[in-house]
Design a protein around this nucleic acid. Structure first.
Lengths: 250, 250
DNA sequence: ATGCGTCGTTGATGTACATCAATGAATAGG
DNA sequence: CCTATTCATTGATGTACATCAACGACGCAT
C-alpha cells in the first residue's frame, strides 16, 4: 500500500499528496491572477483553500491516466506538465504543455480522456471535482472564468490543428518556440532566452515529428542564425521577426 | 448596398437575414435538445427567440470571416458548415464540420479567430453576441450548458490533434467516416449509409491530406471491402469493426 | 571513479504522401 | 439542351520526413 511519506516517492511512481504545512496556501498564491481562482474574492478563495491539496510531482511522474475515473481537477502552480493521448501501438500525441496558472481536468465523461505527467519537478493544487462543480454553481463568476479559459484553450487547439495539419517542420518549430516565449512572457518570465524544459522527443510528439527531425530543424535554425542553443535548455530567439515570418508560413 | 430580398443572394455572396415569417421559430425547433437552448425552459426560450434571426446560407457562402468583429454567435439548424483557418499562402486547415445543433461563434477576443462557410445549403440561427452574453448571466444553467459544449469540443479537438499528428492516411479516413457516422446517429439520421456532403478537397483540408490522397484512400478502403461508395455522397461502412480497428491504429 | 541508461546530434537510406498531369463524370449556368 | 467548370479518380514522379544506425555527452547509481 502506498505511503504518504514524500521521501518514499520513487521515480515514475504516482504523485502523492504532500502534508499541508500552511493554513491556506491560496492566500499566498503568487499566480492566482492566472488561475481559475482569479475569479474569486479574497474571502471566497478560502472555500477553494478548504478543499485543496497541494502536491509535488517529480519529473516524469504521472498525474492523470487516460481512462481513470475523473475525480480530481488541478491547477499547475510550478513546473511544467505534459498532456497527451496514446494510440494502442504506443504512438503518442502531446495535446498540450501546461505551465503555472494552467487548469487541468475538465472532463465530460466520468473518466479522463487523456493522460498527464510532470515534465520537470512541479507542484499542483488538486481539488475534488465534485466539490469544484458545487462551487461553480455557487459562484457563477468562477464558471464564467472557466468558460473563458476553455474558450482560450479551444482557440489554441485550433491553432495547433493548423500547425499539425498544414505546417512543415521548420514552421512547426518556429511556432513552438514563439508560443513558449509568449507564454513565458505572460507569466512574467524570461521571454527571450526562453526556457525549453522538455526533451526533443516530447517536442516531436507535440508537433507531429520525430526526435531526429526536431533536432535537425533546431540545428538548421541555428545554422541560419535564427536561434542560438544555450546551456540548460535555454534558446535565444536571435531573429524573432524572422521566426514569426516562418511560423506564419511567409 | 445589400438588399434583403432572398432571391438576390448570389453565389459566394455573404448570407443575409431572411424575413421572419413565424412568430417564434424556436417554439417549433425540432433540434433544440441538441443546442445551447436545451438549457432553457419553454418560456425562457422566448428570450432567445426575441433576439434570433433565422438565416439561410447557400452552398459555399461565408458565414464568418477570420479577423472580423465577433458580433454574432450562431446555432446550426440544418445543413453542414465548415470551419477553418488559413495560412497566408492559402494553405487551409479545417478545424471542424458543424451539423444541426452545433454552436458557433465562441470568441475570446473581439474578432473571430477562424472562418466559416456553408458546405451545402444550410440554415442557422443568428444571435447578437452581447445579448447572448447577457442571457448567460441571467441563466447560469445556459452558461453551464455552454461550458459543457465547449468541454466536449475540447475533447474532440484533442482527438483531432492525435489524428493529425500521429495517424496515417488510412487511419485518418477511417476515423473520419466513423466520426460522421456517430454524429449522424446522435442526430437521429442514417448512421450507416452515412452522408458525406463535403468534397474530397474539404476532407483533405480537415485531415491534413491532399485531395488525391483522400481519393486514393477511399479507393483503397473500397477495394478492401471496408466501405462502399454510393451515389449522392453516401458511404456504406461495410465493415465497421474493421474500420474501428483501423481508426484506433490496430 | 566506473558503468549504464537517456538524450541530442548527425549520416544513410526508405517511404508515405505530395505534386504534377491527364481523363472522365458530375454539376451549374446560359 | 448544351457548354463550361468543378470534382473525383488514377498514374508517374518527387520530396519531406521517417527510419535505421552510430556516437559522444551527460546524469545517475553503485
Amino acid at each position: 500500500m502506498a505511503t504518504f511519506d514524500v521521501k518514499n516517492i520513487g521515480h515514475l511512481r504516482p504523485a502523492v499528496p504532500r502534508e499541508e504545512v500552511m493554513p491556506s496556501p491560496c492566500a499566498a498564491c503568487s499566480i492566482r491572477h492566472l488561475t481559475l481562482c482569479a475569479a474569486l474574492q479574497e474571502n471566497e478563495v478560502q472555500e477553494m483553500a478548504a478543499i485543496v491539496t497541494t502536491m509535488e510531482v517529480g519529473a516524469g511522474e504521472p498525474l492523470i491516466d487516460e481512462g481513470q475515473p475523473a475525480v480530481h481537477v488541478f491547477n499547475v502552480t510550478s513546473g511544467a506538465i505534459r498532456v497527451y493521448k496514446l494510440l494502442i501501438d504506443g504512438r503518442r500525441q502531446m495535446t498540450g504543455f501546461l505551465f503555472p496558472g494552467d487548469f487541468l481536468g475538465l472532463a465530460n465523461e466520468d473518466t479522463y480522456a487523456y493522460s498527464a505527467e510532470a515534465v520537470i519537478a512541479s507542484t499542483v493544487c488538486r481539488f475534488p471535482r465534485r466539490k469544484v462543480e458545487a462551487l461553480l454553481v455557487k459562484y457563477p463568476k468562477m464558471e464564467r472564468r472557466l468558460l473563458s479559459m476553455a474558450s482560450h484553450e479551444l482557440a489554441a487547439a485550433q491553432e495547433q490543428m493548423l500547425l499539425l495539419g498544414r505546417k512543415n517542420a521548420r514552421e512547426k518549430i518556429a511556432s513552438f518556440l514563439l508560443m513558449l516565449s509568449r507564454r513565458a512572457e505572460q507569466r512574467g518570465l524570461a521571454a527571450d532566452p526562453v526556457f525549453v524544459p522538455m526533451s526533443r522527443n516530447d517536442i516531436g510528439d507535440y508537433l507531429g515529428l520525430t526526435t531526429e527531425t526536431v533536432s535537425r530543424t533546431f540545428s538548421e535554425l541555428k545554422a541560419k542564425g535564427a536561434i542560438e542553443l544555450l546551456p540548460l535548455g535555454k534558446v535565444r530567439l536571435a531573429q524573432r521577426e524572422r521566426l514569426e515570418e516562418i511560423a506564419e508560413g511567409a
